[in-house]
């Protein structure tokens, strides 16, 4: 089962290595991992999507909490979060195919970020599932390269994963 875990950490050198190392040596599988600074420059947020049973999730949370640089750990409930991932996808595209691909892109609320004689690059931010579907739609044209950021997520409503609460 997939779990989306939001982790607040001290913004120190080496913290990411500690978190990633913990997952590796305890045999926890990471699907994606995204890091960025928060509104407080001393604190970074690591959003991890991990795969495992409820027992594994409990161990992940407890072991993360033991790392001294980890300030807060919260697993977000799937029905109560907004999760997004950004994808950059470069597809083979002859001038004749452009209208087709552009219309697919518009349907999916994507944006054309670059165009060349025989390729087109599209960016879309959406849920992981929606991005996977979009990727399938473009596959017949010939995908040259895909870059994904990994999922970031936030709780719905007023609740916040922050050091202030």
């Amino acid at each position: 089962m997939k779990h989306t875990i939001s982790v607040l950490v001290e913004n120190h050198a080496g913290v990411l290595a500690r978190v990633a190392g913990l997952f590796a040596r305890r045999g926890f599988n990471i699907d994606s991992l995204a890091v960025g600074v928060t509104d407080d420059v001393n604190i970074s947020r690591i959003t991890i999507v991990a795969d495992g049973s409820d027992y594994t999730l409990e161990q992940i949370e407890k072991q993360l909490n033991k790392l001294i640089d980890v300030i807060k750990v919260k697993t977000l409930a799937p029905e109560n979060m907004v999760s997004r991932e950004l994808i950059l996808i470069k597809v083979s595209c002859s001038p004749k195919q452009r209208p087709e691909i552009i219309s697919i892109c518009e349907l999916a609320h994507g944006k054309i970020s670059d165009i060349s004689a025989n390729s087109i690059t599209i960016e879309i931010s959406d849920s992981t599932n929606a991005l996977n579907n979009f990727e399938e739609l473009l596959r017949p044209y010939g995908i040259k390269e895909i870059v994904r950021t990994g999922t970031i997520a936030i709780q719905k409503g007023e609740a916040a994963v922050s050091v202030r609460n």
Partner: peptide, 14 residues
Amino acid sequence: ITGSAEPFVKHSYL
């Protein structure tokens, strides 16, 4: 050494 010992320390500082 901080990297090598990471799995076995409660915490470390460089």
